[in-house]
Amino acid sequence: MTDEADPKGLIRESYRIEGISTGECRSIFVDWALSLGPAMTPPAAIALLIARYAAANPGHPMNAVLSDGLEAPPEARRRGGRAARVAG
């Protein structure tokens, strides 16, 4: 059975790792985001995963990472000066 919200089981497994750090959860989240298929949008999948795991795992760092994933990205700003003209 394929889980559309967590196709590789990365989020599920992160909740099973004792002592996992926030940085490790962020890394897993990026891998998860890259593996998410077209069947589900990231916000819908994140909401489903929060509903599935957060209440049963209070204080787990993945809860904060998933919640952060629902926030709107910061507004893009133009960089001026030399940094805008020189490719980095």
Rank of each mutant, 00 (worst) to 15 (best):
M1V: 12
T2Q: 14
D3L: 01
D3I: 01
A5Y: 05
A5G: 10
A5R: 12
D6E: 13
P7I: 14
P7Q: 15
K8H: 14
K8T: 10
K8E: 15
G9R: 07
G9A: 11
L10Q: 02
I11L: 09
R12D: 10
R12F: 05
R12N: 13
R12W: 03
E13N: 12
E13K: 13
S14D: 10
Y15N: 14
R16E: 15
I17H: 10
I17M: 14
I17C: 09
E18C: 07
G19K: 08
G19V: 05
I20T: 10
S21L: 09
G23Y: 12
E24V: 10
C25E: 07
C25A: 12
R26N: 13
S27F: 12
S27K: 14
I28G: 02
I28Q: 06
D31A: 13
D31H: 13
W32S: 04
W32C: 08
W32Q: 01
A33Q: 08
L34V: 04
L34C: 01
L34M: 08
S35Y: 00
S35I: 01
S35N: 12
S35E: 10
L36C: 05
L36N: 06
M40S: 07
M40P: 00
M40C: 08
T41E: 15
T41V: 09
P42T: 03
P43H: 08
A44H: 10
A44Y: 05
A45G: 10
I46F: 06
I46E: 03
A47E: 15
L48F: 13
L48I: 07
L48M: 11
L48P: 00
L48R: 11
L49E: 04
I50N: 03
A51D: 15
A51L: 07
A51G: 15
Y53W: 14
Y53P: 05
Y53R: 06
Y53D: 09
A55E: 15
A56V: 10
P58Y: 03
G59N: 09
G59S: 08
H60W: 14
H60T: 10
H60D: 09
H60F: 12
P61C: 09
P61V: 03
N63A: 06
N63Y: 04
A64D: 14
A64M: 06
A64G: 11
A64F: 02
V65T: 07
L66C: 05
D68E: 15
G69C: 03
G69T: 00
G69P: 01
G69N: 03
E71W: 00
E71F: 01
A72W: 01
P73D: 07
P74C: 00
P74R: 00
P74W: 00
E75K: 14
A76K: 12
R77K: 13
R78F: 06
R79D: 04
G80L: 11
G80H: 03
R82Y: 04
A84G: 15
R85V: 05
R85N: 09
R85H: 04
V86P: 00
V86Y: 03
A87T: 04
A87L: 10
G88W: 01
